[in-house]
Design a protein around this nucleic acid. Sequence first.
DNA 1: GAAAAAAACACAATCTATAGTATTATATTA
DNA 2: TAATATAATACTATAGATTGTGTTTTTTTC
Lengths: 342, 342
Amino acid sequence: MSRIRKTPSKTISIEDVARKARVSITTVSRVINKIPTVGEKNRAKVLEVIEELKFKPSIFAQRLATGKSNVVTLVMPQYEGIFYSFYALELIRGIGTLCDALKLDLLLHLTNRQAFLNLSGLGGIIFADIIGNRQQLLDVLDNNIPCVVINNFIEDLNVNCIAVDNTGGAEVAVNYLISLGHRKVAHITGDLATQAATQRFEGYKHILEKNNITLDEKYIFRTDYSRGQARSAAENLLKMQDGPSAVFVSSDAMALEVMSVARELGKKIPADLSIVGFDDNPSGLYGPVALTTVRQPLIKMGEESVKKINLLMRPGNNEKIEKIILPSELIIRESCQPLNPG
Amino acid sequence: MSRIRKTPSKTISIEDVARKARVSITTVSRVINKIPTVGEKNRAKVLEVIEELKFKPSIFAQRLATGKSNVVTLVMPQYEGIFYSFYALELIRGIGTLCDALKLDLLLHLTNRQAFLNLSGLGGIIFADIIGNRQQLLDVLDNNIPCVVINNFIEDLNVNCIAVDNTGGAEVAVNYLISLGHRKVAHITGDLATQAATQRFEGYKHILEKNNITLDEKYIFRTDYSRGQARSAAENLLKMQDGPSAVFVSSDAMALEVMSVARELGKKIPADLSIVGFDDNPSGLYGPVALTTVRQPLIKMGEESVKKINLLMRPGNNEKIEKIILPSELIIRESCQPLNPG
DNA sequence: GAAAAAAACACAATCTATAGTATTATATTA
DNA sequence: TAATATAATACTATAGATTGTGTTTTTTTC
């Protein structure tokens, strides 16, 4: 007795194609995989039947048979807020577009929790801004799964990392302010528990030193990147006796807050204060004064990570672990001007 | 002679677990799938071995065997710009978070080209803002693949659609302006080739009519949603003799542009002109005057689409095709005020 | 304690492909 | 034309799970 099917609507398999085209399954498989040893007549016939039956090979069967997977998983935290949304989407764009071009499937794990990662059947994995989830990273490395960490330089593990040049970016920014004649340059830091903020602060210090400007603690405002702390930093800075003529702010979000406070206090930007931010968040374009800032190559960072993953996913590759730093770029707009003499 | 393996590092399979636990493969499978007919002793032993071997069942083999797939594919165009990035990421957040909770795999197809969709092995598909790709949609429907279209009401096809209440949102917005005493309310439309813009325009017209205000063509500015056209609309509007005291703008992006132009022309918002936008893009928060706007429930829209897909993916479901409209909401901030008497 | 019922477990088919080897058909060479 | 090389094609094992059916073991009942 013939087996009764669970589902009446069977999916069309390679077998159906083979039967209809009166060839073996192997031949159909060869046609699908463009393997040359197929006669012209049969190839044509098979292609015709595939078309007719609208046959699509099962990716699950293919991957089970080949043992290869072309799934790239992107693990990303799920934050709110426009500043993050720009950042996240740019990254996703870089990654997604290249995956698309390379015919890699992009699996998105948007999560705050410890993502449930089924490591089997996983071609490669990209961690974006995942901190404090070290065990997961260790698991991945343990299983020899191709892996890239974005924007989080993990020094002590043998893992691929791609990040932005925070130090260099800060240096260029501060250098620019000094080149405009500013000597009293303040800095509003981000959360110094993060690499980015620390490195930006370092860059700031380097350039002051290089220009023989003594670092003045009263010009340093340490924050946690929050709006509130940015605001009070801005108030202190703007009301200060002998205040700075310029400020380098560790994020655009905070820089916009500073501009907001300046407006409220009746100060003019850039006449009374020159400002450089960091991130190149497009929100900086919509205020009354367009913000000069340091651009992070987010899309490129995404692309580079996919490139690397792709190479690592190739069987028998000899790729070695790399720690890459991508250059950032100063985008000059309207929020800075030369120091007023006097 | 034993067969030589291509890859020396074999993945750990259910067979390895079975052998080590001294039970049959079936029993291991039963343990994995929490099927009750397994003795306590064996279950414990199997779980122990699974733990020890760090065994993860192959999703490909599982899906091949069951014929079920829990992969949801999100097809989304790849636009640039901050306004889009907010919109896109909110949608992705809604979709991604729920997929995560429901243990669905989210495959992201970010593309401008006609996405290559391998329909086999595809559990469900969500089209976001895909227009002019009707053939693909037809293919999906043909193959009986669970499908939801976001923010694009397709009237003539029997397909699930989820969209925002543009008409209602516009009505509430215009109603609010009228309730503040405004009678001369202008409208800057978006691209009237799109449903959203048309419907918002409709809403505007309804409310004028309802309040016995004759529609005045000189107060209608038709644009293509672009910055440039928004700008010239704003200039005309603001320099007009007997100009409007309020304006309803079909997008926040354009509304911000109007505020920008007003600032340049020395007009005060909201004293000289009350403005309501549409979208609730957070960029509206960072200018000197926070924009009053209509919020679209983007996250909810994403979530609803996943809910629906999830139900449709259940075998033997009786879900019927739905066309859902989600309510939008007026967010009152600082860009409107009662009409100055006189 | 034997028979019947219930619980555990194992065997083998199945899902849909790929790929190595074997076989057949065709073309080339002597 | 026979012998050999080559191009096409088919056969079959394999990938790693699930699942229906059959068998063994344990428990219950009289």
